[in-house]
Design a protein around this nucleic acid. Structure first.
Lengths: 196, 196
DNA sequence: AGGTGTAACCTAGGGGCCCTAGGAAACAGG
DNA sequence: CCTGTTTCCTAGGGCCCCTAGGTTACACCT
């Protein structure tokens, strides 16, 4: 019997592909094993259990998404950076729906594992960097970052859930939303003096 | 043997409670049956299968959320309506995390069932009504509705997924986001003439 | 009150999945 | 070639989904 050459990375990769094809919730140990030509019990040498595997898919997705955003926004600033950032985000969600879904898991991911992943930290840096040109100071900067992330994520999540049934194409609404967010960032409302 | 008095509504209700307590993905036929003091096979007279049950939870949640928003925004307009609308949305998500999660399911819900639920249609009307005071015309109105829904949903989804790790309290960011959205609606960017 | 039909709920069981325990075989290094 | 480690396997327990078919509680009618 020749060995299959499994590894954490190969198992996670196969699971991620499967998630994109059939949906995250249908990714099972048995399915991943079949795809790799292996028995399900063999996977437990490389991955702790199904929950761990899902966490790994989520971290993989976070890293991949971050890389795409970094590439898309390289050298851009202001409105161009905003559009590129948001576009790369949405494109990743469309291209890899299962992986993207994994990032939404409310389950806490193994802290050790999470600490080893560069994606999330890098994503934060990228987002703050993108907003540099708009001249915001803390805490407005954090609030603006959260608003943008919320909108980007909410849009693609609603899109995936079929939440945009109206005749108008989501693409058009997306472009207009970015217009709106850009003007919003340029006219960010001032704080009332009693801030924190 | 005395009958348990099951019905579609009671089964769905028990499942919804369970979802809020232990998380949607852990809601199983067996668990729901145990909570109702019944064997799992008995549930299949009232609910087609687990997927159907999840869909019913989602529709229940949509209806409940819509009702809360309607109550919260009754008689209000402009900024007050916006704040009340968004607050009721977020509060529902916090109070009923499992039910709320069910509304995010990418799975298509049985069309017949969906057609019988007043929630979604009513929610659309409420949202458009809330925006009436801002003087937007189509297609800007639809785009604004989508932007708001995206932001509200995205915020509570990221909040639930632990996406706001920064020191600043999500509540403060939420208040500022509503500030920002209000000014955005008042200064909605004009369309370039070539629209559709 | 008694009879009857319709459900509500049950038992039995097949198949799938998750995961553990322990064994056998491939590979690496000496 | 030999030995140790790692990889992958078989076996199996427990839970879950769902179907088939039986029994019994209840509503309704006479």
């Amino acid at each position: 019997m020749v060995r299959a050459g499994l590894s954490q990375e190969r198992v996670t990769g196969a699971a991620a592909e499967l998630a994109d094809e059939i949906g995250l919730e249908r990714v099972t140990m048995a399915q991943v094993a079949r795809r790799l030509g292996v028995k399900d019990a063999s996977l437990y040498s490389h991955v702790r259990n199904l929950e761990d595997l899902r966490g790994r898919i989520a971290l993989l997705a976070a890293d991949e998404k971050t890389i795409r955003i970094a590439e898309a926004t390289a050298g851009l600033s202001g409105r161009d950076a905003l559009v590129a950032f948001a576009g790369a985000w949405r494109e990743y969600a469309h291209l890899h729906p299962g992986r993207y879904q994994a990032t939404q898991t409310p389950v806490p991911i193994d802290p050790d594992l999470a600490a080893s992943a560069p994606g999330p930290r890098r994503a934060v840096e990228l987002t703050y960097g993108m907003l540099r040109g708009y001249g915001l100071d803390e805490p407005d900067l954090t609030d603006a970052v959260r608003l943008l992330r919320s909108t980007f994520h909410g849009f693609v999540a609603l899109e995936a859930a079929g939440g945009f049934a109206h005749a108008r194409s989501p693409q058009d609404s997306w472009v207009r939303a970015l217009d709106a967010l850009h003007t919003l960032l340029e006219n960010w409302p001032p704080r009332e003096d009693g801030d924190s």
